[in-house]
Design a protein around this nucleic acid. Structure first.
Lengths: 219, 219
DNA sequence: CCATTATTCCATAGAGTAATGGTATACACT
DNA sequence: AGTGTATACCATTACTCTATGGAATAATGG
């Protein structure tokens, strides 16, 4: 083996990993299974992709060893191979936000228009939660809540928020969180709650970031 | 704008950044200009790509805002837009090494076969450099040395190593470094020096990592 | 203002990727 | 064993990416 060949093989390997991530649907899938393992069919439904297409995308991720599988009967569950994969996708997100105007444009048009107040950080939440009457809302689907959530958080999937408003006291401050900083669930929950006159703000980022920060997770 | 559209636009933006990096030649180009700015023609020569092809790849990187340009007469210099780009490419490298067997296979076949001793870390080098008779060799091309190098390092581009062996004392311990942990220049320098009976080891990683670690850089 | 040099633009061919619908396989339940 | 269900495989089509060579542009220097 000679110098040029070494370079080619290494750069090729690095590029392969990047290619696996270089597709919007696959990034969505990675964000989704960062919440916890899911079967092909559930991933297809959550993303709106066809089943065959979902299966194909999952196999691209599998070939690059970014995800792992577990079989239970006929059902195959996919999960991230490693926390480092979440960190890498987060790095990609942050780099893109820092360098590409489009991201801030969308945030401004959509996020800022809906939650009037600045989202709060994990540190702020921890501090306020101990002092005040704060209710943490996990607005992700219930399966995701079941696979791990912020201690003390109440599960109110966005879809059922409408029906469960009466459960919520108007005295409390609500902090909603979801899959991550660019997930729209918490934004929509805050918008809905604010419209109904509740005090609601959004946590800056979601569950995977909470867990990666070493904070406690409840099951 | 509605929830799904927001998702699509954001994931699309993230995927675009990943796509810019998802090509082996572009990763090589990024590693190259992480050493300092270079004109199109120099990049083409260093990578062995055709000029038009190099220009096209640079424009892909430019559209994703990963690189910036500076014009001087007819010559256009490309440089990284931000240190975060280096960190991201390093993250990609590390993730790939952790998850994909190919990288370790190449390292084992090529790197381990050539430098008998473990590469040393930056910390080790700093410690040894102050105590012992250590000579640091920058084996990158001289332009890259000129754009910033480890303080006290001697510039001996790999290509001229053969002719300059007599300058080197057999009493010293030589530590060679180059563009990064997967660059072959330092490995080849160590191989050559060892074959000639010199004591030579390789620094674990290269110039950009040294600089990003906040260590002093000399010009 | 013409020639030179550095770079970019353009058209094209070939390779690779994504989505679709149909088919095959593997397991579970009766 | 036979039926149903979950997933993977395959062939096809449309699309995108890479590389090439030639033409165009932009700045410089006689």
């Amino acid at each position: 083996m000679e110098g040029r060949e070494v370079k080619d093989r290494l750069y090729e390997a690095f590029a392969q990993t990047a290619k696996a991530v270089a597709n919007p649907h696959r990034i969505e899938i990675l964000e989704l299974i960062a919440q916890g393992e899911r079967c092909v069919d559930a991933i297809a439904r959550a993303t709106g992709l066809s089943l065959t297409n979902t299966s194909a995308h999952l196999q691209v991720l599998h070939r690059s060893r970014l995800v792992e599988t577990k079989r239970a009967g006929t059902t195959v569950f996919y999960r991230l191979a490693d926390d480092e994969v979440v960190r890498f996708v987060n790095h990609l997100r942050d780099l893109t936000r820092a360098r590409v105007g489009e991201v801030d444009r969308v945030i401004k048009d959509y996020f800022d228009a809906r939650d009037t107040f600045e989202p709060i950080t994990r540190e702020d939440l921890l501090e306020r939660a101990s002092n005040q009457d704060v209710v943490i809302l996990d607005v992700r689907p219930k399966e995701e809540y079941a696979q791990g959530h912020i201690p003390g958080a109440k599960s109110i999937p966005l879809a059922s928020l409408e029906d469960r408003l009466e459960e919520l006291s108007r005295q409390s401050l609500f902090v909603a969180y979801c899959r991550g900083p660019y997930c729209v669930l918490a934004v929509q929950a805050v918008e809905r709650l604010s419209a109904e006159g509740y005090s609601a703000i959004r946590l800056e980022d979601g569950m995977p970031e909470w867990r990666l920060a070493g904070l406690p997770v409840e099951r």
